[in-house]
Nucleic acid binder design. Structure first.
Length: 469
RNA sequence: GACCCCAUCGUCUAGAGGCCUAGGACACCACCCUUUCAAGGUGGCGACACGGGUUCGAAUCCCGUUGGGGUCGCCA
């Protein structure tokens, strides 16, 4: 039997970190076993599901390169099939109509709580004759669940978990308006889609028992379950918007690379020895459920950033340069310098060693993209004194006679200038820092002689002249 | 409250009875390198929640305590 997994988000918001990891694990597991990975949108909650959320989820998955086989299935489109399954259960005596009012239900729960019992429905309509039905009340359909014994699941991550059936009540299958509940829909869809492994957050662990009962009532072979721990925020509490747990696209906007995000997510709750940097191919061959931990993991931005820095360094210059040029065009109101793209590309190799995100990279590439006159940051401007401006004037004069314009030759030229052509010998740093300020507008930049080479003779001289004139 | 799950450095984890005076990574600190910032290199700080068992021997097995998390909807 070939493996079939699925990711089944409800489109009530963006694709968040936890969902992305669940999707990744499902994808990896399916591909590891040469199986298929499906996508199903659980949009049965008509009130809360939105088209925007569907798009956000799909775009997020595409960005992460988590591809699904076949078309995404809309759960909503299958409502008739779900209802049909419920009707069959009624016909076979495994489900029944329940006319209990919301008030009755609330009372039941309250009473149970008072008496220290699990707050469950007491099954009062289980065996009553339909003739006793109150007039004018539309019933829900409930599963006639077993009342004795235990229900046990053999979870691939959590191990064997057992719960007493009296803790579980007769769950609602069809609402009073005839629409299917989540419990019914998931079971019917997973069965119809031939899902073999249900890998999902462990907030569903308790649902698994009820779903198992449903599978049995329907006479279907249940899938294998794997409930993975949830991701928590840095404070150990459940991840929420308050923690900056935004949609996955927010991380894209911050300049996280999708490969880095996947690598980070993979290592969150899963380990393979001491390995840290694991690409998709390697992950596919290594991934298995027994490597998944059982304790919730905390989301740690600094590690994400570190992994991202790694992927940034490994990424090819052209790809990054395009990303950066794009960002700069959007963030800088004035047109970029004519040579901006070429300079950014040439400078990328050393720029990318210094950044943790594409956003930072863009920040650092700023000075390559801008046209003259270059703005000088306030703290950098403090290095421009009468003394250093004089120094730069002399250096510029010197450089005008220098024709060979490459990093190494410029470096030896400037070293010589600093050491021997000044009234008193200067340390290289005394010249290099003001030079850096003049050429980049900042006290921090890639190696300054490399910058000179990339900027070119004319631009370098012009930027220098701007400073002391 | 009831039920279920979990528990190794601040964080992610390695560890499946002796290989553990507990390993790696991130973060942090120091030093080296150095024209700045990084990167890189070297070193440092730092954990088996607690208490009982079992065993010649326990981070690893069992029980309890504590702590954390999850679920208890005609939401998904």
């Amino acid at each position: 039997m070939s493996v079939v997994t699925r990711f089944a988000p409800s489109p009530t918001g963006f694709l968040h970190i936890g969902g992305a990891r669940t999707a990744l694990f499902n994808w990896l597991f399916a591909h590891h076993h040469g199986g298929r990975f499906l996508l199903r949108i659980e949009d049965t909650d008509l009130a809360r599901s939105t088209e925007e959320a569907v798009d956000a989820i799909i775009n997020g998955l595409k960005w992460l390169d988590i591809t699904w086989d076949g078309d995404a299935v809309s759960q909503r489109s299958r409502m008739e099939r779900h209802a049909q399954a419920a009707r069959r259960l009624i016909d076979e005596g495994n489900a029944y109509h329940c006319y209990a009012s919301p008030e009755e239900l609330a009372e039941m729960r309250e009473a149970a709580r008072r008496e220290g019992r699990s707050p469950v429905y007491d099954g009062r309509w289980r065996d009553r004759s339909p003739s006793e039905a109150p007039a004018g009340v539309r019933p829900v359909v409930r599963l006639k669940a077993p009342r004795e014994g235990d229900t046990r699941i053999d979870d691939l991550v959590q191990g064997e978990v057992t719960v007493a059936n009296r803790q579980l009540d007769d769950m609602v299958l069809l609402r009073a308006d005839g629409t299917p509940t989540y419990m019914l829909a998931v079971v019917v869809d997973d069965h119809d889609m031939d899902i073999t492994h249900v890998i999902r957050g462990d907030d569903h662990l308790n649902n698994a028992f009820r779903q198992l009962q449903l599978y049995r009532a329907l006479g279907w072979e249940p899938p294998l379950f794997a409930h993975i721990p949830l991701i928590h925020g840095a404070d150990g509490a459940r991840l929420s918007k308050r923690h900056g747990s935004l949609g996955i696209e927010a991380y894209r906007d911050q300049g996280i690379l999708p490969e880095a995000m996947c690598n980070y997510l993979l290592r969150l709750g899963w380990g393979h020895g001491d390995d840290e940097i694991i690409d998709r191919e390697q992950a596919t061959s290594w991934f298995d459920l027994d490597g998944v931990g059982r304790a919730p993991a905390r989301f740690d931005v600094s590690k994400l950033l570190n992994v991202n820095a790694h992927y940034l360094r490994a990424c090819d210059d052209k790809t990054l340069a395009d990303l950066v040029s794009d960002r700069l065009r959007r963030s800088i109101p004035a047109p970029l310098a004519p040579d901006a793209d070429a300079r950014i590309l040439k400078g990328m190799a050393s720029l990318k060693l210094r950044a943790k995100t594409v956003a930072e990279l863009s920040e650092m590439a700023h000075f390559y993209a801008l046209d003259r006159p270059l703005p000088i940051s306030p703290e950098a401007a403090t290095l421009l004194t009468d003394d250093t401006k004089g120094l730069l004037r002399d250096l510029t004069q010197d450089l005008r006679n220098h024709t060979q314009w490459d990093g190494p030759s410029l470096e030896s030229e400037v070293r010589e200038f600093a050491g021997t052509r000044q009234p008193k010998a200067r340390k290289l740093g005394e010249v290099a820092q003001p030079l850096r300020v003049a050429l980049t507008g900042s006290k921090v930049s890639p190696p300054i002689f490399e910058v000179m080479e990339i900027l070119g003779r004319e631009e370098t001289l012009a930027r220098l002249t701007d400073v002391f004139e």
